[in-house]
């Protein structure tokens, strides 16, 4: 494992910890999109079908379990926790995320490395992850003001994607036959979706002002 991939995994983990911290410390999930969290839950469940069939490393297995567990825990909290669910921005979080699930599954049925159960679900999870942040970004844009922890959550998620692209560039030059166009193209799309957010985050950081997204 190279340093870029490790940095990517760590920023991904930090983003999840920031999200858990926000929900547990403030007992609030305002500014967080339940739709995006549900999509991540589906992404991890679909991608980690190999959890019990292929062993790669203890590191991989533990991280997979953490990603599945934390995403399901957040979804549970936002839906059922007596206090937390009250702060859910139900009226603003109206993105029709099931269309994303359907669209990505159709795409995976046609564009995959091999037509097998696992490969189709793997491709589906890659496509869905690329667009899973959309409901979250739209919710932030609609509500305008972004609290610090929510802003940092999205920032770390974006950093994770950026590091993974560096990881692929590194692997492309250091490994033989490292072709992976499905995840590279999807990864580029996903990172591009964050570009706008990064820009406004940088502006607010430079001006030492609260993060505000234009309507």
């Amino acid at each position: 494992m190279n340093i870029f991939r490790f940095a990517g995994d760590m920023t991904h983990l930090i983003s999840i910890l920031v999200l858990l911290l926000k929900v547990y410390a403030t007992k609030s999930c305002s500014g967080i999109s339940l739709k995006t969290q549900e999509l991540y839950g589906i992404v991890f469940l679909a991608r980690y079908l190999d959890l019990f069939t292929d062993f790669i490393s203890v590191y991989n297995t533990v991280m997979k379990l953490v990603f599945i567990g934390s995403s399901l825990a957040i979804v549970w909290c936002m839906r059922f926790h007596r206090v937390v669910k009250r702060s859910y921005d139900r009226d603003v979080d109206t993105f029709r995320h099931y269309f994303l699930v359907g669209g990505c599954f159709l795409l995976a049925l046609f564009v995959h490395e091999k037509f097998s159960f696992r490969e189709v679900f793997w491709a589906f999870s890659i496509y869905l992850e690329a667009v899973a942040i959309l409901p979250q970004l739209i919710l932030l844009q609609r509500s305008g003001n972004v609290d610090n922890l929510t802003g940092q959550y999205v920032l770390f998620l974006g950093a994770y994607r950026g590091f993974y692209i560096l990881n692929w560039i590194y692997r492309y030059f250091t490994e033989d036959q490292f072709s992976r166009w499905i995840s590279c193209v999807s990864g580029l799309v996903q990172t591009a979706l964050y570009a706008d957010f990064f820009y406004y985050y940088f502006i607010s950081w430079k001006n030492n002002a609260k993060l505000k997204l234009p309507a």
């Binding site: 991939r5 995994d9 991904h12 190999d50 292929d54 790669i56 991989n60 991280m63 997979k64 990603f67 490395e113 793997w122 993974y164 990881n167 692997r171 490994e175 490292f178 992976r180 499905i182 995840s183």
Partner: peptide, 10 residues
């Protein structure tokens, strides 16, 4: 089967 390099990531 052998795990492809793509699938050793998270």
């Amino acid at each position: 089967g052998q795990t492809s390099p793509v699938k050793d990531e998270l």
